[in-house]
Amino acid sequence: MDLTLMVWRQKSADAPGKLDQYAAKGISREMSFLEMLDVVNEGIVKAGGDPIAFDHDCREGICGTCSQVINGVPHGIEERTTVCQLHMRHFKDGDTIYIEPWHGKAFPVVRDLIVDRSALDRLIQSGGYVSVHTGGVPDANAILIPKGDADTAMDAAECIGCGACVAACPNGSAMLFVAAKVTQLASLPQGRVEASERVRGMIDKMSDEGFGNCSNHYECQAACPKGVKVSFIAKLNREYMKSWF
């Protein structure tokens, strides 16, 4: 099939950007979205141009590197799917596809479709860990954890840190990301000890990094490729209140 792509091109963080049009011809239905872009890029390179820069790595939906807004939706309209697992059979011949980088003050554009998501790393640095030294820990079965709690922790830990929640949020908020980490660790006895410092540290850091506030639009859950739930945000709010008592 033949497609028209409208792709955000921006040389560097300070350079102005705009949407450029590209023709993607002879695209097969079996291709993944990124493979379609590979084909377009090979054409650009052969013509001596600068290929479209985009982030990607594992191409199996787990590393969280790929990050494109496709027709206004982070990772595209397919539910619970990362860009790398989105396939061209979901598009039709003649379609025009808009491809843009994540938007948000905390995610400045690096080049084209690549943004700087290091703010998410700094959120983790502000408390998204258990302060344990290597070695000197008790046997793994010394502290029992109810299966329900372990399952909740795992549900929250599904987060791949791609930032789609921030990209989808009309306020550019990272509440779902923070909520997932806070819930994971607060559900486990090992993480409970520092729960107060963690929740306040991460929440404050979120504002410092320029993320917006949560308005409970729930766009984040809808865009999350791993289906991380907004109920964790309620949990985050509870943990925050608890931290004051």
Binding site: L19, V69, G72, C169, N171, G172, F211, G212, S215, E219
Partner: peptide, 17 residues
């Protein structure tokens, strides 16, 4: 604050939830 955290929307406006 929210406005400044997300200054612009996307070319295609799609609301999920």
């Amino acid at each position: 604050e929210n406005n400044s955290a997300k200054e612009s929307g996307y070319s295609v406006n799609t609301n999920l939830r």
